[in-house]
Write a protein that binds this DNA or RNA. Structure first.
Lengths: 223, 223
DNA sequence: GTCTATAGCAGGATAGAC
DNA sequence: GTCTATCCTGCTATAGAC
């Protein structure tokens, strides 16, 4: 337990440790005993402050996840503002940098992505919050500024799929960090993460396109 | 319970229902009582056939996941063989089709991806199997055929990141199906999935590149 | 506000009849 | 090979002392 944790109120310590554990292992894999041990308090404290384990989980989203999402998004728009004029490259670069390296510590970033990943996989009541207050408005605003940068023929749905694909890469390169370490044989550290940012930018903008040839395209059409 | 399930041996029914439940909810969220209810047998059967819950989980991978992975990969190479001459487009198309629509039912595909997703997120003993017997050899062989289709300056690591990115999209568009339905407002059905295949092929080959401009690139370099 | 003690229940595992 | 009955552990939640 850090100094800051010792100083913080029991309630704050509980939220903090609960968030870390829920993010790392998922709701069902965490027991309240684990949480109270990490927060260095007693079993009854959870009931006193939050009523139930489930409500503690929801409170993690209400008082931590959502506000952090807001701050990340503000960070993104500020970053974008600094890089005018707008272009696809700039938008993707700001997205990758914001969501992979972000305005927070590695630890906070990881929590944020893991919690979201779990909610996307198996939604709980927290999903309503996540979608309504964070994802839906952000995606809508993002679509608004990307729309004029992309071909007009693109449907709204294709635009959304494009945006979701960038997030898919960011999210995957966080959540599957174990698999990535295994495949590349490298530690998932700052150096690797910086390389992942570069990769995501390049892949999002051009795909594998470096080797894309008209003949290949023609070949595809024939099948 | 289907007719096939009723006919299958208790052992097979247990493996089948356990796989479905583990894939859907994760190891910790599933109780053995849930499994034996679904498999329509008694509690002692799990101990009799598999010893422990954990070993039942591992057996799901040993006797189901791995063999299915082999069959999926064989399907991919056959598909690729039929589409010569090789090109990036062909490879990506076969990958997307194989892993999103595959040679199996929707249900089996979902199980396969969900189980893998869980192991990438939080590895258990099953991860060794998954990586050594399925992912590592497949990625290596895939890298071998894609290498000549991509620029020579590409490092082995960049090549792997490219391959992993395609899989990231496939995996995400399975695992986050709830979020996708929320964003697009559509049911995650066959029609949507076919559209996702098209999208993954296009995004993997060209990214957002439709709107990619030299000025934007120049702008990026300045930052 | 924080503690101890415990109720009440569900979990995995197992013994032993058939 | 399949069953019932049961053990024991660990869980969430709560009552009540301080």
């Amino acid at each position: 337990m850090s100094q800051r944790d010792r100083d913080a109120s029991t309630r704050e310590r509980l939220l903090d440790e609960a968030e870390a554990l829920f993010a790392e292992k998922g709701y069902n894999a965490v027991s309240v005993r684990e949480i109270i041990t990490a927060a260095n308090c007693n079993l009854a404290a959870i009931n006193y402050y939050f009523g139930t384990k489930k409500n503690l989980y929801l409170e993690v989203f209400r008082s931590r996840w959502i506000s952090r999402a807001r701050r990340v998004q503000e960070h993104f728009w500020r970053l974008l503002e600094d890089q005018k004029p707008l272009s696809l490259t700039v938008v993707v670069k700001c997205l990758a940098q914001t969501f992979l390296e972000g305005p927070f510590s590695d630890e906070e970033n990881r929590r944020q992505h893991q919690l979201m990943g779990r909610e996307m996989d198996r939604p709980t009541e927290a999903s309503d919050l996540v979608h309504e207050q964070a994802m839906k408005p952000f995606f809508a605003k993002l679509a608004g500024i990307m729309r004029p940068l992309l071909p007009e023929k693109l449907t709204e749905e294709q635009l959304m799929l494009n945006i979701m694909s960038i997030f898919a890469l960011v999210l995957h390169f966080y959540l599957a960090r174990n698999g990535i370490s295994r495949i590349t044989g490298r530690q998932y550290d700052t150096a690797l993460k910086a390389q992942l940012v570069e990769h995501i930018i390049r892949f999002s903008l051009t795909g594998l396109g470096q080797g894309f040839t008209p003949e290949a395209e023609t070949n595809q059409e024939r099948n």
